[in-house]
Amino acid sequence: MSQEANADFSEEEKDILQEIMNIAFGNATADLAEVIDIYVMLSVPNIKAIAIGALPEYLRKTINEDVESSIVEQKFWGNFKGSGLLVFPSGSGKDILAFLDNKEVKDYNGDASATLEKSGLLEIGNILIGACVGKVSELLNTFVTYSPPQVIQNEKNEFNHLIEHFDPQQSAIVMKTIFTFKEKNINGFLLILTNHESIGWLRKALNDFMDSYE
């Protein structure tokens, strides 16, 4: 089983997934403008199959390009299963708050500004990850359930915990896209990590998707 699923995605399958993501992100952009009142530009996604064992290293490299960042992580499950990781340059929390207008959030432990910033990151993370994963799921004719998002600190190398429940022998599909909030000067990137169990299903869903056009 692991042998079979370990087989890398074929070029064709990658192309289909890429196309699906393009459509999904196009839909997401339109709806995001409606929901958060901001035009979010999403780049053409880059798709890679990476061995789980190599994932922490990949994340460290990819994320550390920006010296310090704020990361929102959210797990989702269903046929399509994995994690969304949203990476913002550190300090974006304040800019996000400015347009979210979250004055109502109640003070906690006297550390109001940090709490507010975190709430902004969590909220926007939840919406962006939900938009992208949701739209991809919709095209693949499935739906997923989400766990609460959390903010993780990259300096503490917390990536290991992300992959604890993955088998190091297995591989994951990593989809990376760069997003920019138009006119807000905020940008970052989104990674969708699909875990191994989903790969068989994903392959079938991709084929079904193609079949529906034939």
């Binding site: 909220e123 919406i127 938009a131 994963v133």
Partner: peptide, 14 residues
Amino acid sequence: RNCKSVFAFGNFAF
């Protein structure tokens, strides 16, 4: 905003 998001994307809000 969060309710709109759930209607639009079928995601969850916490």
